[in-house]
Amino acid sequence: MNEAFEVPTVVSFAFWVASAITIAAAIMVVTVRDVFKAAVFLAGSFIGVSAIFFLLNAEFVGVVQILVYVGAVSILIAFSVMMISDVSHGSQPSRARYASVTVSALVLAAIAVTVYNTEWTLNSGLTDPDAIAGLSGTFIEDEIASGEGRVRDASGIQASDSQVVQTGVLGDSTGTVGALLVREFVLPFETVGLVIVAALIGGLALMRPREGEPDPRGGG
């Protein structure tokens, strides 16, 4: 075990608090009858999740979570709830509740058993000082012929003028994620862009008033 990956007690405490809030909000989302209230609880749950992201050193994902989920999806759902009068006065009592609970409990059990029975390869098991520095310390990246760069523990080395002492990727994830998105994962990234465009067009096509049907906006 090495200290570099130890989680501070305060962070651990914050995680449990955030988890408790998230789980509680999630339970409310699936149980309250008023769909509008459920949407509000959903936004709370999203915020809890983003907090967990921040605690997991994933600042960029956390920000995206807030922007996309809390800022866009929750609002979208809330507006939908308000537009469909049917649901604003409450969802019908859920059916097959006990069967659903059983199935969900089984899935949870399966996940839990798997999680606790697996021998995970953990960061805390790393011994290479370069690797530890690259993840959570500070390091220097060599410029070598291939352009890939070699990571070296910066603590014992004096950086030259052309070299920059970098923070480990877990400490400063945003820049690294950005680099990954436009380098190694540029193809999935662009594909996701295409998917979003397709989804938008599909949504518009579905919503377009059909021939002979009254426009839902009450127009022509």
């Binding site: 199935v103 059990a109 399966a110």
Partner: peptide, 9 residues
Amino acid sequence: AAVMAIGFV
């Protein structure tokens, strides 16, 4: 979906 979940389990 329930069948799928059971199958997963």
